[in-house]
Design a protein around this nucleic acid. Structure first.
Lengths: 197, 197
DNA sequence: TCCAAATCTAGAACGTGTTTCAATCATACC
DNA sequence: GGTATGATTGAAACACGTTCTAGATTTGGA
């Protein structure tokens, strides 16, 4: 793999970067989007405010990058095992259900990361794209069900895109307190039923 | 109709409210979300900052209310005529196409209103709900195609919900500069094809 | 018409994201 | 080892959403 942002720079720099992202996640987990204050992140990560801004040009970049790291972790884990369920619908719902449950356990963190994702503009396109790829991989893997990666068809990809859209929208409703976590699962179920038939 | 927020208060108050919303739209149309600064809105509407906050408790409330007003206008207009097209798919795409074209002509305004919608939390639930109702009405009317309103089936409503979700997601990609307006139309087309078959 | 209550105004002030700057520190190269 | 270059620090300053206050104005009822 080519040298990416994660592995660039000196040891000390990689350490700083890790501390910053750890502090970000910790603060987000405690108090959500509003608790991720740049001064607090800098303090907790033991770097100066200016340094924080040298590593991440905005709060949104910071949070979306943190989201990418979490997503990467989740997707890597999901990749290791086959998804239970007899039909694509069941398997997709299984993955979505597991994920939703996980998100429910850390509502503040979910709120912070989702808000950042929604607010991100073109300057964060790369990080957003990474998240999209990971999500697509997870759902495609679920439709497939096997350990082996298969080349998804055009229709598969379209379906996955729509599922991702519905998911984001449902998540948005949940993190903004307009709907319940149950509603997320329900609307996913309806959408998946419509799409995988 | 019961006395709603729009018609409550004295003449002078209704006038102030209208001036505020007009100033909001004008600023949004010029410079998008960032240009809608509370001090600028107050100045342009000839009210004090404190008064602005008495009418709308936050910038998000202000923008989402303005969005509701615009949506109401659009839906009222769409209600007056039958939608052209021979199939539900064609008719829905016609409505979405017309709407997307309209939004493209005022990209800054679209950006401001969409961002506000995405950022809105539970305290704006009423205004959000109004927008949802209007959108649902427009798409249901398009599926139907006739002048007469028909009671939508459960499946209709589910489909309309999913279409709305995909639309929001596509719009989000567009207003944040990650995708083109063409992409919006394309992804709507794919989603509608998947759903209305 | 007059008064009490509500509303409006002008402006200061606060919090947090972001920028800037001078001084200090670390690193790489001679 | 010495030095140039870049990174880091600490702190101040700015922008904009939001809150607050004291006084002026408007409104609605007696």
């Amino acid at each position: 793999m080519a040298t990416t942002t994660e592995t660039a720079g000196s040891n000390a720099q990689r350490e700083r970067r890790r501390r910053i992202l750890d502090a970000t996640i910790a603060l987000a987990d405690t108090g959500g989007f509003d608790a991720v204050q740049m001064r607090a992140v800098a303090d907790n990560a033991d770097v100066a405010l200016g340094t924080l801004y040298r590593y991440f040009p905005s709060k949104i970049h910071l949070l979306v990058t943190a989201l990418g790291r979490e997503f990467e972790r989740a997707e890597a884990q999901s990749r290791t095992r086959a998804v239970p369920g007899d039909t694509p619908h069941q398997r997709v719902m299984h993955v979505l259900g597991v994920t939703t449950t996980a998100l429910q356990k850390q509502p503040q963190l979910t709120e912070a990361l989702t808000r950042a994702f929604m607010f991100a503009d073109a300057s964060v396109a790369d990080e957003i794209h990474l998240v999209g790829i990971k999500l697509t991989a997870m759902i495609t893997h679920a439709i497939d069900g096997t350990d082996e990666a298969r080349e998804p068809t055009t229709e598969d990809m379209a379906i996955v895109r729509v599922i991702g859209d519905v998911w984001l929208s449902a998540l948005m409703g949940w993190v903004t307190g307009r709907t319940s976590a149950d509603d997320v699962t329900k609307s996913m179920d309806v959408a998946v039923k419509l799409l995988l038939r």
